[in-house]
Simulated assay, not measured.
Amino acid sequence: MDGCFIRFYLHEDQRCHGRLAWEWLLDQANRLGIRGGSAFRAIGGFGRHHQLHESHFFELAGALPVQVDFIVTQEESARLLELVRDAGLRAPYAHIPARFGVVNPELGEPPAES
C-alpha cells in the first residue's frame, strides 16, 4: 500500500489541551482510526536554537525531544496534520512517501507488496 511516514518532533514536557503533547497526539490518532503510532524519547538532540540537550541521570525532565511516528495513507496524513493545526500545537514534522504492508497478514489485512 502506498502512503507516507509522518514524524512529529515535540518536547517531552510540551502540552496540548492539558495533556502531554505526545500522549494527546497518540490518543487523537487512535480516535481517528490510525492503525498505529509510536512515541520515542531521544537520548540527545538540538533544535532551531542549536542548543544541545542530552539525557543525563540528574537532568530535569522536559528538555529532550520526543518523536511521534505514524505510517499512514495520504488521507490519514491530511487528517492528522489538520488535527494538529486546529489544536494550535506547534509541531515540526517530516512527511516522507512510504510503501507499507504486513508480512504474513491476518485474514482481512492487505498483503505486503513485492
Rank of each mutant, 00 (worst) to 15 (best):
L60R: 15
Q14S: 10
L60D: 13
R41A: 03
H11R: 13
G3I: 13
L64H: 00
Y9Q: 02
A39R: 00
G47C: 08
E59D: 11
G3M: 05
A21H: 02
L10K: 00
E54M: 12
I96K: 01
L32A: 00
V103C: 08
G101D: 07
F58Y: 15
I43Y: 07
I34M: 13
I43G: 13
G37F: 02
P111G: 07
R48M: 10
S55R: 12
D86T: 14
E59F: 01
F40V: 03
Y9K: 06
H17C: 14
R35M: 13
V72E: 02
F8V: 00
A112I: 12
F57H: 13
I34D: 07
I6K: 01
G36E: 10
R79I: 02
F5G: 04
E82H: 10
A98K: 02
Y93F: 13
Y93V: 00
A61S: 13
L52W: 09
F5S: 11
E75S: 13
D27N: 10
P110S: 11
L81P: 00
S77A: 15
S55Q: 10
R35G: 15
F58C: 09
A98D: 06
N104P: 01
Q14R: 05
L10H: 01
D69G: 06
G44A: 15
A98V: 02
G36D: 08
L52Q: 12
I43C: 10
C4W: 03
A91F: 00
H56D: 12
H11Q: 11
I96W: 04
H53G: 02
D27G: 12
W24L: 02
Q28L: 05
R48K: 12
L26P: 06
F5K: 11
Q51H: 14
F100T: 08
D2A: 07
S114G: 15
W22I: 00
G44Y: 03
E76Y: 07
A98T: 06
R99Q: 13
M1N: 10
R19A: 10
G37C: 05
R79G: 05
V68I: 01
P65V: 08
A91Q: 03
H11V: 08
G108R: 09
A39Y: 01
L81E: 03
A21N: 01
R15H: 09
E106D: 12
L64T: 04
C16M: 08
Q51I: 12
G36L: 07
D69E: 14
R99K: 14
R41D: 03
N104T: 10
L20Y: 13
Q67M: 04
L81I: 14
G44S: 15
V72T: 11
R7W: 01
S77G: 15
F8I: 05
V68W: 03
I71G: 03
W24D: 06
R48I: 07
E23Y: 06
F8Q: 03
A94K: 09
H53V: 05
D69T: 01
G101N: 00
A112F: 15
V66K: 00
G37K: 01
